[in-house]
Design a protein around this nucleic acid. Sequence first.
RNA 1: UCCUCCUUAGCUCAGUUGGUUAGAGCACAUGACUGUUAAUCAUGGGGUCUUUGGUUCAAGUCCAAAAGGGGGAGCCA
Length: 468
Amino acid sequence: MKDIKRIEIIELLQGKANAQIGTEICVKGWVRTKRGNKNIAFIALNDGTIIHNIQIVVELEAFNEDILRRITTGACLRVNGKLVESMGQGQNVEIQATEIEIYGEADVDTYPLQKKGHTLEFLREIAHLRPRTNTFGAIFRMRHAMAFAIHKYYNDRGFFYWHSPIITASDAEGAGEMFQVTNLDLKNLPLLPDGSVDYSKDFYGKETSLTVSGQLEGELGAMSLGKIYTFGPTFRAENSNTPRHLSEFWMIEPEMAFYELEDNMNLAEDFIKYLVSYALENCKDDLEFLQNMYDKELIERLKFVVENDFMRLKYTDAIEILLKANQKFEFPIAWGVDLQSEHERYLVEKHFKKPVILIDYPKEIKAFYMKQNNDGKTVRAMDVLFPKIGEIIGGSQREENLDKLVARMKEVGINPDDMKWYLDTRRYGTAPHSGFGLGFERLLLFVTGMVNIRDVIPFPRTPHSAEF
RNA sequence: UCCUCCUUAGCUCAGUUGGUUAGAGCACAUGACUGUUAAUCAUGGGGUCUUUGGUUCAAGUCCAAAAGGGGGAGCCA
């Protein structure tokens, strides 16, 4: 077989290789379908670079029967052939095969992927193979595009990528149940006289867990470098079984010195709009596929978010609206209680019909580090609520006053001595600052139109599920 | 964790008031067709009806439990 430099299929289909029409080229990829008659066969080949396939045309008399029988859906091929303008409808160029090597066969009796008819639930059970489908190829290309856009957005605006630790000894944020990290022998634990575990014998000499948020350490970066963001894995051991929760997920947490709540909101809104615009401009083919297959209003909805201001209002005003709403809610509404999913959905999907930023929540339902308002009742929190997926961002201006912060910690039962390093930011050169957390997979739900968060991460981790 | 629904061919699903040999489409095999686009047409093979226990002359179908999965809720991003 002639040794020809491989060309990626995206180059062929976007016309970047048109100068080579009429010459012999080489492509490599996986077979999506094969069809034809006794004279000719058509192979749709995909190499993951783009959602579309290149058509390989095979004149059967030029190849032996055996090799064609072994070319089935899922097989991996190296193909040499002449790049030509297509004689058929549906594609501009195609390849007239001259030589084919089969890198790997895919046994039709056991290969689980077929040309059509798979549910997302079935594909979830074969997560190691599902990236080979059109749907998951599109999703994971978009996942990459969004990750890249996040770094580009912050880098272009002078933010520094800051790495908060994955393993942490602080359990102060109260953001959920934590996964413990230990190298103690669980069948033979060192015990203290009172029967509790002696963590001084553990690897770090104290009890440690996987992080539930990089924020507290992120604040340390903001109070020195000015503007930072984290983007890393986050772990919550909550027994949450919903289409919106993972026990291992990725979160983006910008933290900015000298930003007040208003600045924080402006950043959050601009950030999301940038990411959605980036998807519209750079993921067109994948978006069109997902729109056709799953969500007819996807692109329209993305454009709407980019083109319209988010609605901003105070928690207290939201309660007023809900109390006046001509709709029955399962959970009663009263000032001081946290909003339920049904309430958030009413505000976003029915009342305002656009994304909503809610601010100034009662302090009792928010974390200890949020800046206290002068009314003594509310804090400078902000939640960004989106249609269909609910809370996509949670953030706040932080309490920079040492005395107020310590007082609040004591009220909620956190020992300030355990967080000396955190309080030092307020003790020495404190400053107003703000930040928020964006759930990466929730963003992906929105931009892909998928409805289950397990379908926007390659290998989802949920209660009782850590396969692959 | 709570509520609710589902589990029948490799995949997606039908299956009537419980009644003889459980069906279809796709996939697969064989054949037909001079270029297909989820190709089409014909023929064929393919089943421990999730598991366990129960009711009944008789269970895919009714009852109970378990396992796996979906949706809703809570917790949150």
